[in-house]
Amino acid sequence: MSSATDGKGILVVPACCTSVVVGTAPKTSMRMPIVHVPFASAAAVASGLREALLVRGLEDKQVIVWAGDGGTADIGMASLSGAAEKNADIIYIMYDNEAYMNTGIQRSSSTPRGAWTTTTPIMGKTEPKKDVSRIMISHDVPYVATASIAYPHDFYNKLQTSLKIRGFRFIQLHSPCPVGWRFDDSLTVDVARMAVETGMWILYEYKNGVIEISNPSRYLIQQNKFKPIEEYIKIQGRFASVDENTLKGLYEYRNRNIEFLNKLAK
């Protein structure tokens, strides 16, 4: 990220796994300033930071929020929506590992249906995954994209695209968590790729009011070549208790999502 922003980035990080990953004060593992902030307020801090840069004539700097799904889809949703509606000139990256991993794998609204977490210990989550990117599209912001850690070039290109746009930009980065999803570390990229190949995660961009399905997902949609969702869930322990009914729900969720994106895609 520091290379993509060419030393011009300032990172805002609410409470999440990254709060720990970047290391202890006063040192930091990132080559850019980092502002750690309380859980619910990353988008608001970033908005204020950006406005101060403008009054100080430092327009060329980029303010980037790096937040988990809890800090985005749940406790941070109001401030996210507030910043998006005002078209705050920031990039917001939601790294989505589909549960509260930093506190030890509790469900979030971004957890998919059927997934085990420590707060859905027997039945798995009974509600479908909240689609935050779709909520951001509803704010009609200049740029929304989904990305996956299995497709780093696609993510990097989207980051580069977003850097050239002004106004509110949102990227939702699908990021499997080996501990929370119950699979071996060595399979992290495979699991992320399988999410795309089964259509459980679809890569696209929303720009100028139009959705464009990104290459890895476009072919799968056009040819209807998705792998069965069973292949995605069988390699993760968190889906161990998924029954036929829940599986049906996952298929319905995926198909409705494809239908929605096709309607808006050019």
Binding site: S41, A44, V45, G48, A52, V55, R56
Partner: peptide, 26 residues
Amino acid sequence: ARIIKVESEHSALAAVYGAAIAGARA
């Protein structure tokens, strides 16, 4: 000056913090 019309008081003080740590009188 620039005014940031936020959606809550929690965000108001958060935005003031963002501005202040970037060098603005807020």
